[in-house]
Amino acid sequence: MELTLDGKVILITGAASGIGRACAMAFAAEGARLGLIDRESAALATLVVELGADTGTTEVHAVTADVTDEPGFAAAIDAIAEYFGQGEKGGAGRIDGVVGCAGVSGPFGQDVADIALAEWNAVFAVNAGGQFLLVKAAVPHLRRSSAPTVVFIASDSGFVAAPGMVPYCSSKGAVVQLTKALSVDLAGYGIRVNCVCPSIVDTPMSRVDLGRETTGFAGVDYPVQTPDDVANHVLYLSSQRSRPINGVALLSDFGYAARSSFPA
């Protein structure tokens, strides 16, 4: 299937590792031009080299920024739009799609009574606030695109909960509702907003959280996705092939949320 992403300018946050990195690779393979943002400058520089930007294989503009720093984050987004807008009519900045991958797990396996408000706020600042700030700063540029899209990485934890994950689950539930609210508010500009909600994905963050740093997920008795699996969903939702889809939280969990735990 031709995804019509060739030449599109796609901005990805949390691009240096995990799902963000897989998305960068997947969009590059489709011929997209990439604006990459991450707070880890060394990992971001490594990704740029791996994408072949230094050889002209992929057009990339990478900027180090933290999604919780509104002025710095907004400046990074504007810099990417300006970079890809060079030569555009009127000199306007250009962004065709944004993908919000930046996220943290926060306190994991802790009793709610032991979680500090500062820890709660830190999780929401990245997982929900970072997505809000992404759209806030990108909307002026997205409005100029002929087919603008927003895709957030949420989680199945926005629908179901596991013990010891109160801040994370709550923040991802907020992203699911943010997706719906923005799809309504931005529909008049033709901006589609969707999110992907995967179950466990084999990323450095999930390996640390689940104590699988050395073994990975080999031999576990539950299904685990790869970052590439998630990136494929993001590609589709960013493409005009999914043109009628808006305000949707795509649950990607091997059918687990459909199963009842009631013993009958």
Rank of each mutant, 00 (worst) to 15 (best):
V135G: 00
A147T: 12
E88S: 15
Q86V: 12
F73G: 04
N121R: 09
T57V: 14
A65V: 06
G72P: 00
V99Q: 04
F132S: 04
Q131W: 10
Y168L: 07
V49S: 09
A74P: 02
G87P: 06
L142D: 03
F73P: 00
A162S: 15
D66E: 10
A113S: 15
A45N: 15
T149R: 13
E70T: 12
A53I: 13
S155V: 06
I115R: 01
A162V: 11
Q86R: 14
A137H: 00
R143A: 15
G56Y: 15
A137R: 01
H141T: 01
V104A: 03
D78K: 09
T64W: 15
V151I: 12
F159D: 08
P148K: 01
A116V: 11
G91R: 04
S155C: 05
A92K: 13
S145H: 07
V49L: 15
A74F: 04
C101N: 06
I95E: 00
R94Y: 14
F124G: 06
F73K: 02
V60K: 03
V166G: 02
G129C: 02
G91A: 10
A92N: 15
V63F: 05
A74W: 01
A65M: 01
I115Q: 06
S171D: 08
A122M: 04
F132H: 07
E119P: 02
T58K: 01
K136I: 08
D78V: 02
A76F: 10
V112A: 08
V48F: 01
A79T: 09
A125N: 09
S170M: 05
V139C: 07
L117R: 12
T57N: 12
G106Q: 00
W120M: 00
D114E: 11
T64C: 12
A125V: 11
D156S: 13
A154Y: 06
A174H: 04
G100D: 05
A128P: 05
G87R: 07
L133Q: 06
E70D: 15
G109C: 12
K136P: 00
D69A: 13
L51C: 02
G85C: 12
Q131R: 14
R143I: 13
P148N: 08
A154I: 07
T149N: 12
K172A: 13
L51S: 08
D54P: 04
N121P: 09
G93T: 03
A138G: 10
G52M: 10
P140T: 14
A116D: 11
D69G: 05
G109H: 13
